[in-house]
Computed example of a mutant assay.
Amino acid sequence: MVVLFFAMVCGVYICSICLKQMSQNTKAKFLNIKVVNNDHQNSCPSSAHNNDIVLDQSLHYPQPGTFTREECGCNPVRYFAILSMQRSGSGWFETLLNSHINVSSNGEIFSVRERRMNISSIVKTMDKVYNLDWFTSASKNECSAAVGFKWMLNQGLIQHHKEIVEYFKKKGVSAIFLFRRNLLRRMISVLANSYDKDAKLLNGTHKSHVHSPLEAQILAEYKPKINVTLMMDELNKANETMTRAIEYFKSTRHIVLYYEDVVNNRTKLKDVQEFLKLPYRELESRQIKIHTAPLSKQVENWDDVQKALNGTSFGSYLY
């Protein structure tokens, strides 16, 4: 009986000690979690001035209203915009960027007229993109290290360049210019793409970009006829537009790339990643080039085009 009584007393004592320790551990864990969360929020730097020290203006810590960035909340994000012209390789280039695990480039968002009706709608759209509240199939919002979009020069960019330049400088947006050196090849691509919008050669559907050699072959069979009378004016206009755009945005942080250089020299892609201060990755695209034949095989009235451009400043485009 004495042994049994002693065992019961010991059992009660041990249980009381265990319950007390469990209660203390639970409280300690709760307090620890709370402290970690507070430290996490306060440890995120600011892209503005902090204690009279100017931090990197290109670093941002968005707080989207549509979701929480969770563990990536303190990961800095850089803003960029790809500035280009239609049929200059910008779609292919953007798919290369989006193959980087830390990049979200959201496509040609200003192709929708309502978004570029005035500078207010333009700024509102850009704010939504850069705050990570814009969702596309390319979005990697939670842990994006660089977020941007593709913008054609004729989509309000030149028209509102003063206000946009100020926005870029204020927000620390980096501009990536992507142009095509051979403007004749660009013209052929524009005409062929315009024709396919009506003809819909691929089983009744129009595709500006393709992902199979067969689709590329079908689209490449069409040979546009170039209006030689208007050709020189169109080439001059395109060249002047590119020059003017670079001049307008020269005060922003920018890089100028040419499609031909990116195709022939893949180190250019490394330069882009360094420009955006991204960890280096091998970039890939599933897009297939449509026009691969010599220019003489792509134009219906090639002899007329050749005769008109020979001896001019655009003569090099023939080769």
Score class of each variant (00 low, 15 high):
residue 75 N to V: 12
residue 303 D to V: 09
residue 44 C to N: 02
residue 267 T to K: 08
residue 11 G to S: 09
residue 252 T to K: 04
residue 282 E to K: 15
residue 33 I to L: 04
residue 127 D to P: 01
residue 223 K to R: 13
residue 220 A to H: 07
residue 2 V to M: 11
residue 109 I to K: 00
residue 310 N to M: 12
residue 198 D to F: 07
residue 12 V to T: 11
residue 299 V to T: 13
residue 288 I to R: 12
residue 117 M to E: 13
residue 258 Y to G: 01
residue 287 Q to V: 15
residue 150 K to M: 05
residue 77 V to R: 10
residue 142 E to L: 15
residue 218 I to F: 07
residue 168 F to P: 00
residue 120 S to F: 11
residue 164 I to L: 05
residue 255 I to E: 04
residue 122 I to K: 01
residue 224 P to L: 08
residue 254 H to Q: 10
residue 85 M to N: 14
residue 293 A to Q: 15
residue 192 A to T: 14
residue 9 V to M: 07
residue 178 L to G: 11
residue 53 I to N: 10
residue 153 L to M: 02
residue 285 S to M: 06
residue 118 N to K: 01
residue 90 S to H: 11
residue 210 V to F: 13
residue 239 N to M: 06
residue 161 H to S: 09
residue 295 L to W: 10
residue 269 L to D: 06
residue 21 Q to S: 13
residue 147 V to Q: 05
residue 87 R to S: 11
residue 185 R to Y: 00
residue 131 N to W: 06
residue 267 T to H: 08
residue 81 A to K: 02
residue 149 F to K: 08
residue 294 P to A: 00
residue 220 A to Y: 00
residue 255 I to P: 03
residue 33 I to T: 12
residue 216 A to V: 07
residue 307 K to F: 11
residue 263 V to Q: 13
residue 298 Q to H: 03
residue 16 S to N: 15
residue 18 C to I: 15
residue 3 V to C: 08
residue 30 F to A: 11
residue 239 N to A: 15
residue 94 E to Y: 02
residue 251 S to E: 15
residue 67 F to W: 01
residue 274 E to L: 10
residue 295 L to V: 14
residue 167 Y to S: 04
residue 301 N to E: 07
residue 194 S to W: 05
residue 171 K to T: 06
residue 176 I to V: 14
residue 71 E to N: 14
residue 66 T to G: 08
residue 284 E to R: 05
